[in-house]
Design a protein around this nucleic acid. Structure first.
Lengths: 199, 199
DNA sequence: GAAAGTATTTGACACGATGTCAAGAACATG
DNA sequence: CATGTTCTTGACATCGTGTCAAATACTTTC
């Protein structure tokens, strides 16, 4: 067979960069093709559709991101872990200039309620998956913290609450473009969950 | 001059209904024109652009929504007020079938980072405005509650935290389509802010 | 009451996006 | 070297936004 003339991974990287900056609907396959130095038709041949291309690019990102989260949630005191977790989260959607926002949150909100609109069920699944996995990791950290007496409460609902706050931060980031505000909210949340400072 | 052949407000109502269900990018002016029984060109004549039409429709919604929020946050014990606030918030984006989600959160996340992409600065302003006003109302309720001894802490950051959670709930709603989960998180948040039950 | 003026309507057009398709090109294998 | 399979390339159909000019309907003025 004829060999592919472009680097599969490189295209995914370039594509996700564009999706991240401009949103899925705001990025055309022509944009990606131009940026990646590939013919538009080749993208259709290799990935099938814009949606499938996005999904492939997103999975790549999600894997990397989840790894980073896992790392920061895996060592240190519970307070340090949660602080690092919020730090990483905020840093993630404040990266780039202008800041690119949170791709997962954005993707979730771009979903169409009606069938056939926007991203479909596969995409929702992928986004929900990442959120679920992150929640599990946070819950794990809380459970370990509870065993060491650093946390007192139900890890399950507390983890859900924390992840909800991170999603809310992604939204406020778009609204106010104020990183200090995000950090203040994050710190406050940690204090609410663990109790005030000297603990 | 020649009189307009359609009801300005009715068109805004119909338009926002569609924007709400399918997202701004997912709704075409042809859709709206068909549904409203108006020519597409007339919409451009009356509103100027899709974006301007959306904005006009959104302002209408925002006004009504803010009024409802103000009402539930204005009477009863602080715990009752916050419970009613979360109730209203969740009910709002669980309305419709399938549920339509939160238009403000969706709009914020659809914003393009780069200029010229997606909704522009005016839209961001409108979304951010609603979020700010809601935060002010929540803060007011907390301040009154503090004066009555129902709340102990800094109303400003607490209000910000609560609103952040509501935005996060809007995101989780899209991810998991699980209303019970949303209510659990809301109840947990209230408990974190006010202290456990019997208070 | 007729003419002029003005805003709305209507349909045609330009442009760009997605997705399909057929024909051409490049490599593997017999 | 022939054959077959995949990738590439350009043309096309369809739909979306936004612009424009001509037709239309009403108000105002003479």
């Amino acid at each position: 067979m004829r060999p592919r003339e472009f680097d599969h991974d490189e295209v995914l990287r370039v594509a996700f960069e564009q999706f991240w900056c401009k949103g899925v609907r705001g990025t055309s396959l022509s944009d990606i093709a131009r940026e990646a130095g590939v013919q538009r038709g080749s993208l259709y041949n290799a990935f099938g559709s814009k949606e499938a291309l996005f999904l492939a690019a997103y999975e790549r990102y999600a894997g990397e991101y989840l790894g980073a989260i896992q790392k920061v949630l895996g060592s240190g005191s519970l307070r340090k872990r949660l602080t690092a977790f919020f730090d990483l989260t905020i840093k993630n959607f404040r990266s780039g200039s202008p800041p690119r926002g949170c791709p997962t949150t954005r993707g979730l909100m771009e979903l169409g309620s009606a069938e056939g609109e926007g991203l479909d069920e596969n995409a929702r699944q992928a986004f929900a998956d990442l959120v679920s996995r992150i929640t599990d990791l946070v819950q794990g950290a809380l459970s370990e913290g509870a065993a060491r007496g650093e946390f007192d409460g139900a890890p399950e609902i507390a983890a859900l609450h924390i992840v909800t706050v991170t999603r809310g931060l992604a939204v406020l980031e778009r609204a106010f473009d104020d990183e200090a505000q995000l950090r203040k909210i994050a710190a406050h949340t940690i204090n609410l969950v663990l109790g005030k400072e000297g603990r």
